[in-house]
Design a protein around this nucleic acid. Structure first.
Lengths: 359, 359
DNA sequence: CTGAAAGCGCTAACAA
DNA sequence: TTGTTAGCGCTTTCAG
């Protein structure tokens, strides 16, 4: 089998030195245009492609981005983080990076540090959701650029791509209140996650601003995580305690779906007796019945933004801290409002507007 | 900042040569156990970890696995292929590999060859679903081990991890027929995909074996792909043509859900008037109403198996061709059978049995 | 069982 | 603008 061509073959073929070839390869300036063309031609003719490993060794950059997500986030809220991951994947390709995915346990053990960090196999790291802070410190000490997605640290200034949770929660609350709902319950879990906490905070603030009483007895936030069955359990507990809200704002779609299933099971009319709204806009919400009112979060877009920021960070040395709040969009469906569906299988347009990085 | 330790530091610290350290690092034999312990100790004390790039260059193996899926599969049947990908991810880690994901267009263009192939940045490739055959040939010519997942080529002998589609389709058909359904429709799309074709073939064979007439007018297979709205359109066309099946076997869950939505929209009682069954067991099927009868496919498990086979292939030089048919499991739910649900939020156990590779 | 030495293919000073 | 050269950190013969 033919040995694959190396930079030296290109050098010979063009009667130039390998360093000149390297300059062309890396789009460096100070190369005569004639020369550049000649090199490019030879490269094409030989079918030459630089060897990643060699580049990595010589240039001290791997061409990879690390993507870290906690294992329970990934299993419990999979569709959400998967979308973010796919967004990074997509954008990374545009920048000629590959994404190495890894999940990490909740607790930090030295032995569980992602291998790509130990082997210096990534040029920067994207962290999605809440992960152990010790690990974040560890990465930071390594000097690697970090971008947080859907999570923030107060203790430390790090670039992050965040959901505009306040805005989304406010839209939901305004929508429910405008429809005349006054006793609005909040169903949450994993309340220490910054996104969930923000949604809850805005829930309370919205009540106040609308001159509605904040009723702690209409709130459940102590579920362990935000999976469907926890939403189910939470609303069950709430109703069995004797309270009867007229609307439920769930911390995310999964919990909202859990609520929905319980309420349907016990014969509560939705949305007539109780309106329900979630957050995130996972696909399932548009297929269940009644279809779920929610706040659309542009998950792929968040992943893409994270890569853009990270690539900037990798290239620019100086670590400017940027925080982006990605806009959200209220999606009103049957679970909160009787709607007449003209085209029952219309698919919601999921394309995101073209977000721009702050200048 | 402290320079990270290299193999040379370990050598100095132990007063051994770097080649001995390398032997230990790679678990090679012929190292005195005393020496090995001494080296290990020094490695631990220094916090040394070999540099991936250096290894790649010297050893001619990258430590990466390529994962290729066609872009339309990935967008249209996302939850399915995502699960397979996550399975590979998980298993790869156990073998100290990382997975580089890429999607490819339907048509083959030289300029669109995944970069990881050009840069020799993967040691083997997993191909999920149908991809352009020219690309497969190209990879094969590169001499890289290939494992196909949920796809097969007749023209060429390649290792593959396949769904036992025949078995699953037979189970579905037997279930429907046992319930007294005789006029069973088949709704499909993307019929050239080997999995879809097999399900369809078994549909026909099952009819014959049960002395039921194969009725071409109860069959729609010309939908472009297998997304929800195509299921919706297909069943609509079928019913409007005047036929009235008593059951529908859809090529996958997405199409089954489409059927379900149409039938509900026009007021057909499910399962009383028409029973519906899908295939794949995507999560949504257990959340819609009525819950969908389907065939569970162990998607993560398929990804894991693919990695196991691939790693074997990478290590063993000789390319033995292995074909694994992963077993499936019939899941009967409300869409085909009136059921009384004791615990309405019980989650189906999604854990796979421990599959073994053929000896 | 251990050491010496030659690369692996490329980048990046520094010279010319 | 182009060439020379020294590594990058590790694996792998080949000796000893």
């Amino acid at each position: 089998m033919k040995r694959r061509p190396t930079i030296e073959d290109v050098a010979k073929k063009t009667s130039l030195s390998i360093s000149t070839i390297s300059l062309v390869l890396n789009n460096k300036p100070h190369v005569n245009d004639q020369t550049r063309q000649k090199v490019l031609k030879a490269i094409a003719e030989l079918g030459y492609h630089p060897h990643r490993g060699a580049r990595t060794l010589a240039s001290k950059s791997s061409g990879n981005i690390g993507f870290i997500v906690s294992d329970d986030h990934f299993t419990h809220v999979e569709p959400f983080y998967t979308k973010i991951f796919l967004g990074t994947e997509f954008e990374a390709r545009a920048h000629d990076y590959y994404v190495l995915l890894t999940t990490v346990a909740k607790s930090f053990k030295k032995s569980l540090v992602p291998r790509f960090l130990l082997e210096r196999n990534v040029d920067g790291v994207i962290i999605a959701g809440k992960v152990n802070e010790e690990l974040i410190d560890y990465i930071d000490k390594l000097g690697l650029p970090i971008i947080l997605v859907d999570y923030m640290l107060k203790r430390k200034r790090l670039s992050s791509v965040l959901i505009d949770n306040r805005r989304g929660a406010r839209d939901i609350m305004n929508h429910l209140i405008a429809a005349g709902r006054k006793d609005i319950a909040f169903i949450g879990g994993d309340i220490h996650h910054s996104s969930i906490a923000e949604r809850f905070d805005e829930y309370k603030d919205s009540l106040t601003e609308n001159n509605l009483q904040y009723q702690p007895l209409l709130v459940v936030t102590d579920e362990r995580d935000t999976r469907v069955h926890n939403g189910y359990n939470a609303i069950e507990r709430l109703l069995k305690s004797g309270r009867k809200p007229t609307a439920v704002f769930a911390a995310n779609d999964a919990m909202a779906i859990g609520c929905l299933r319980y309420l349907k099971a016990v014969g509560v009319k939705i949305p007539d007796e109780i309106a329900i709204a979630g957050f995130d806009d996972i696909e399932m919400g548009s297929h269940i019945e009644p279809r779920l009112t929610t706040v659309r979060v542009f998950k792929e877009e968040m992943g893409k933004l994270a890569v853009k920021l990270l690539v900037e960070g990798i290239k620019s040395e100086r670590d400017t801290v940027t925080t982006v709040h990605v806009p959200v969009e209220l999606i009103v469906r049957q679970s909160s409002q009787t709607e007449h569906v003209a085209n029952p299988h219309s698919v919601d347009d999921s394309s995101a507007p073209g977000f721009e990085l702050p200048a």
